[in-house]
Design a protein around this nucleic acid. Structure first.
Lengths: 154, 154
DNA sequence: TCTAATCCCATTGACGCCCATAGTGCCCCA
DNA sequence: TGGGGCACTATGGGCGTCAATGGGATTAGA
């Protein structure tokens, strides 16, 4: 299945390298890429990453915007200045640069989390915290919907 | 009948594998799949599992959400990062990873419980407890409804 | 020249693939 | 109707492969 799914945390070694999960790698290599494109997430202390086609996808969405609008300028700046390429070495590892560490708080381990069309890189505890928060928000919403249904249907 | 019904508990072997009940397997294989998609249930200490089409069903619901809303992000995160594929081996077994154990408390045995369009995986005692609670709730509710009917209808 | 990136190789543990066995239910035939 | 045998499932275990990780050596760049 060619989707980014599930999550794994891998160690950063003494030389600052970390293995990208084999499953994620195979998806990217299947598309014929040997590099990753990574972008600092806007709302989260995480990086959105994927094959270079991820940038292409974002670019395309940009083109549909009015090129004179300020929003498009901002977006473009964000995509190209706040994003970067990560080279995969022969063993499928990337080196964790300051670009990654600053935004995420990553130090010794990286949690790779699937997001269907791309994946994210997290500092493990931040990931766990976010996961808990998301679950709680979803439960809350579910509870509200149940209340709606009960009052609405009867 | 291509529905997930009934419940069975199977042992986890020394290598951490457990047989998926043949009946459940046949439903999935009938649909041409050799993998399972499993998701950590929001409100229960159990995993919702089924064929990959289960994920597809969820994804469709996601598409109907506003992609810029926080809720869509949350749902995507929940579905894709907090869920994953489980490979069935040649004998119809899956390996029970920490991903499964953490959320459910599963250690030595797994209870597979049918849920019509999908099935669930439980730690046996948790399952039993939940089953008892559900029965009780249903009985209680039935009792209340009977009271309603008696006062209201006659 | 020193640091940092890159390439290459070794180790270890997990996982996939394969086959064996025991228990159970079912069917067929005597 | 009862017994024998077949089919299938759950379970156990061997073994080879691959992924994750560690570390040496070589090259490039500051």
């Amino acid at each position: 299945m060619n989707r980014f799914l599930g999550h794994v945390t891998n160690k950063i070694d003494a030389k600052g390298r970390v293995s990208v999960p084999a499953h994620f790698r195979s998806i990217i290599q299947q598309a014929g890429h040997t590099e990753l494109y990574a972008l600092r997430s806007l709302h989260l202390p995480a990086l959105d990453a994927g094959g270079p086609d991820l940038l292409t996808r974002f670019d395309k969405r940009l083109e549909s915007e009015d090129p004179f609008a300020e929003m498009a300028d901002d977006m473009s700046f964000y995509l190209h200045a706040d994003g970067g390429f990560l080279k995969l070495d022969a063993d499928g590892r990337i080196t964790v640069t300051d670009f990654l560490r600053e935004h995420t708080g990553i130090t010794d381990d990286v949690t790779f989390a699937g997001a269907n069309t791309h994946f994210q890189m997290w500092q493990p505890e931040q990931f766990e915290a976010h996961r808990a928060k998301v679950r709680q928000r979803l439960m809350e919403r579910r509870r509200l919907e149940n209340l709606d249904n009960q009052t609405g249907n009867r």
